[in-house]
């Protein structure tokens, strides 16, 4: 238990370093663009594939489970849309990205730590925490919301696709459901969650890597620890944010 508080304390000290005394702006711009590429663009494929399948599966499940003459078929479209927007495209996508991006960040920074690259930066007088971590945080927070929107759209498309392909329901009913009772605020809620989750993924996994010690085994451990901690923190904040934003 004491360990947890120690980690939280060190995490905030690190964040203090990340947000203080930044180096030259031009250098950051270049690094942010690079990070957007490696953290964001490279995750589009994974996000798209998972979303299209989940959208299709949700639609199928709804069709099977809501087989009743009293429930309009359009409810399936409505339910798919809401599930994607409220939970899947923000929280579940964030968990998946925690696995992909989080382990990537932790192992990259952890390797830099044990091969003395971080020391080399410090020796040059560079604020290594800020130089390495800030671009990742900015890139993730700016880019992940696009992934969420993409995931919502593709998921909904997946649902439509499966209903058209299997004929389990009439696609027009699905579309009718999609357009029913749409609250733009749900999207805002989803995007806020994503931005917070992006911050968590980038900063927590960077923390795990930055304090790696020892050899390459430690780097592996750091990246495992990053995924586990990110997932737990994301679930906690999911609860808190839902409480704050929706109730």
């Amino acid at each position: 238990m004491l360990k947890i508080f120690e980690h939280i304390g060190r995490y905030f000290i690190l964040m203090g370093k990340v947000f203080s005394r930044p180096e030259k702006g031009a250098i950051y711009r270049r690094r942010i663009i690079r990070e957007m590429e490696s953290l964001g663009l490279d995750s589009i494929g994974l996000t798209a594939i998972i979303s299209v399948f989940i959208g299709a599966v949700i639609t199928l499940q709804m069709c099977i489970n809501l087989e009743s003459p009293f429930i309009p078929r359009s409810l399936v479209g409505y339910a798919t849309r809401e599930t994607m927007i409220l939970e899947f495209s923000s929280t579940v996508v964030a968990l998946i990205l925690a696995g992909k991006v989080g382990s990537n960040i932790a192992s990259e920074i952890g390797t830099m730590r044990i091969t003395e690259q971080i020391d080399a930066l410090e020796i040059m007088g560079v604020n290594s925490a800020s130089y390495l971590i800030l671009p990742k945080i900015v890139a993730a927070v700016c880019f992940f919301p696009f992934l969420t929107i993409l995931s919502i759209l593709i998921g909904i498309l997946g649902g439509w696709g499966i209903s058209a392909a299997t004929g389990i329901m009439i696609p027009d009913d699905y579309v009718e459901g999609l357009l029913t009772d749409f609250k733009p605020y749900s999207i805002v809620y989803s995007l806020i969650k994503t931005a917070v989750f992006a911050y968590i993924i980038a900063s927590v996994s960077a923390y795990c890597g930055y304090y790696a010690r020892g050899n390459s085994l430690e780097v592996g451990r750091a990246s495992t620890r990053a995924v586990v901690s990110c997932s737990i923190v994301i679930m906690i904040f999911n609860l808190i944010l839902t409480q704050i934003l929706l109730i």
Binding site: R34, E108, T111, M112, T115, E116, Q117, D119, A120, L121, I123, M124, G125
Partner: peptide, 20 residues
């Protein structure tokens, strides 16, 4: 220290070049 570090060059045991 930062001012002095501009006058310091260091070569690390493993080179410590930035991999990326």
């Amino acid at each position: 220290r930062k001012a002095i570090r501009k006058d310091i060059g260091m070569i690390f045991q493993g080179g410590a070049l930035l991999d990326s």
